[in-house]
Structure formats: structure tokens, C-alpha cells
Write a protein that binds this DNA or RNA. Structure first.
Length: 284
DNA sequence: CCTGCCGCCTGCGCGC
DNA sequence: TGCGCGCAGGCGGCAG
């Protein structure tokens, strides 16, 4: 469940099921998702036994489950990670990687991940903010997000606008979908050279990114398939709100021209050829 | 310092 | 049917 709205949906779901609960046992079914815990899966398991969760937190696409001890479980969903809440005894999911059982008689929390780009780690002293993600910028929903810092940082770069939007050290939470949607709303091309961005333009694209992610969050995020669902396995409804992402050949909602898909950073970018024309100063 | 490329994984749909 | 290919909401590490 990759971008900010989808991760926030997961955070809220987890808040209902983990806050105040004490871990009885953790089971690691595949070592890869805990690879960032250098002491190994057994140590990860041992550290967590008996600990109690506080309210889950998030920055950009990272989320963490603070523990009352002051440490935290840091999580990233990668491309295909999910947290799911299940009754004890429910059949294991095919891609179940880590299971959390609790000391009460409630259900368990499961981390599943098909591709295993995501994972969990134990962050010592990370309850407030895990040091592992100190390099991640605040996201646009953070009350302490610094717009001036974003504007100056963006204009100082020598790269293309979409690359900059995807750079989690400049602004976090934006991924391929919401970058394309924000660019469309701003009528800007993904290759526009960042150093040619006017301060007002920079504020505008940020505003669009914040707005589109907010609208997506309001309807539970974007779910193209079963890989992107909330902790109860339910899909979000923002797919119908997408103007360009995944809409190759469909008419631009503004001017009716067919949306184009173009290769970009080993993935795809979607744009309207009319209202998002190639810029004079381009950086790819 | 900065920017950009590659590798990490599994599975699905497509064309041959 | 089978096989290879391209593609998928991400990021860290490293080369230049």
C-alpha cells in the first residue's frame, strides 16, 4: 500500500487494533522482511515479547509502532506490504511474513508482503521518531512541514520536477500515482527543470499534491487490486478520482486529448499531451 | 556534496 | 500450454 494516503489508512486501522495491547509472541516466517534488523530474526522476536504498543505514527510512507518502552517497530510497506488483522487460527495468507500474537484473547496482526521490498525493524529509542528515518522529510500533512524549505530545496535542485517530487528527502509521501496527479492538476510536465520553478509554482504543485492525497485519504486510498487494501482487506475508492494515472488512451478530463503513458525511471508517467506539454527547459 | 542508475523480489497478463 | 518479456503505488547503495 504504498503512497501516503494508503499508508495512513493502514496506520489508522492499526491504531484500533494495536494501541495498548501487549505482545505475547512474534513469529517470523521469512527472514527477508526483517533483514534490517542486523541481530537477526530471533533477536527481533525476543526483543518484542511482552512489550506494549502505543499509538502508531507515520511520516511519509513510513509508519512505526511505538512501544511503551520508548523503542518502536518501524515498518515500510514497499510495493506490496500489508498489515492485516485476523482472528487467531485463520488460515495463513500465502505471503504471510510476520505474525504478532497478543496476550489478550483478541485477534492477531499479520505482516504480509508478496515482493518483500518492504519490511519491519526494531528501532531502539524510536518511539518519537526512529533515527533510521531521520533523513526522510516531513510530509505535507505534518503540522511542522516547512513550505519555505520545500520551495528553496526544490529550486536548488538540478533535476526534473517529478524526480524531485518523488525524492523523499525533499517532501515525503508522494509516489508515482500522486506525483502524476499533482502534475496534471498543476498543468506541468514531469521533466520541467526544477531550477526554473518560480516560488509560487513550487507552492502550487505542493498544494496540489497535498490536495489530491487528502481526497484519496478521504475515500480510503487507491486500490487497483487486492495488493492495496486496509487492515480488514477492504479496498479504497480513489481509482475513480484519478485523472491521468493508469489512464493511457482515455480522454483528459480537461481537454479530451488522449492521455499518454511514457517510460520514466524504469516505470511509467502519465500526462496529457496538450495541457502538460514538454517544457523548454527539461531535465529527465 | 549531488544526481541518477541498478538491484532487490514475486506474480500477472500478454504475445508468440 | 508453455515461455519469455514487460510491468507493478518503493527504496537503499553506490558510482560518477
Amino acid at each position: 500500500m504504498p503512497e501516503l494516503p494508503e499508508v495512513e489508512v493502514v496506520r489508522r486501522g492499526l491504531a484500533d487494533f494495536t494501541t495498548g495491547r501487549t505482545i505475547d509472541a512474534v513469529e517470523v516466517l521469512h527472514p527477508r522482511p526483517v533483514r534490517r534488523h542486523l541481530a537477526g530474526p530471533d533477536d527481533f522476536v525476543a526483543l518484542l515479547k511482552g512489550q506494549t504498543f502505543a499509538v502508531p505514527a507515520r511520516r511519509g510512507k513510513y509508519l512505526w509502532l511505538p512501544l511503551e518502552s520508548g523503542d518502536a517497530v518501524l515498518a515500510h510497506l514497499g510495493m506490496s506490504g500489508q498489515f492485516r488483522v485476523q482472528p487467531v487460527g485463520a488460515p495463513d495468507e500465502k505471503h504471510l511474513r510476520v505474525r504478532f500474537r497478543f496476550a489478550d484473547d483478541g485477534g492477531e496482526v499479520r505482516f504480509t508482503d508478496q515482493r518483500m521490498f518492504g519490511g519491519l525493524s526494531y528501532s531502539e529509542g524510536g518511539a518519537e521518531l526512529p533515527s533510521e528515518i531521520a533523513h526522510i522529510a516531513r510530509d505535507p500533512f505534518d503540522p511542522l512541514f516547512d513550505e519555505t524549505l520545500f520551495v528553496s530545496g526544490l529550486r536548488r535542485r538540478k533535476t526534473g520536477l517529478k524526480r524531485a517530487l518523488l525524492d523523499q528527502t525533499l517532501v515525503s509521501g508522494v509516489g508515482n500515482i500522486y506525483a502524476d496527479e499533482a502534475l496534471w492538476r498543476a498543468k506541468l510536465h514531469y521533466a520541467k527543470a526544477t531550477e526554473t520553478m518560480k516560488p509560487l509554482q513550487a507552492r502550487e504543485i505542493l498544494g496540489h499534491a497535498r490536495a489530491v492525497m487528502g481526497e484519496a485519504l478521504d475515500v480510503g486510498g487507491t486500490s487497483f487490486d487486492a495488493l492495496y487494501v486496509n487492515v480488514n482487506g477492504e479496498s479504497g475508492y480513489f481509482e475513480r478520482g484519478l485523472a491521468v494515472y493508469g489512464q493511457e488512451g482515455s480522454p483528459c478530463p480537461r481537454d479530451g486529448r488522449p492521455i499518454r503513458r511514457e517510460p520514466f525511471m524504469n516505470r511509467s508517467s502519465f500526462r496529457c499531451p496538450k495541457c502538460q506539454p514538454a517544457p523548454r527547459h527539461a531535465r529527465w
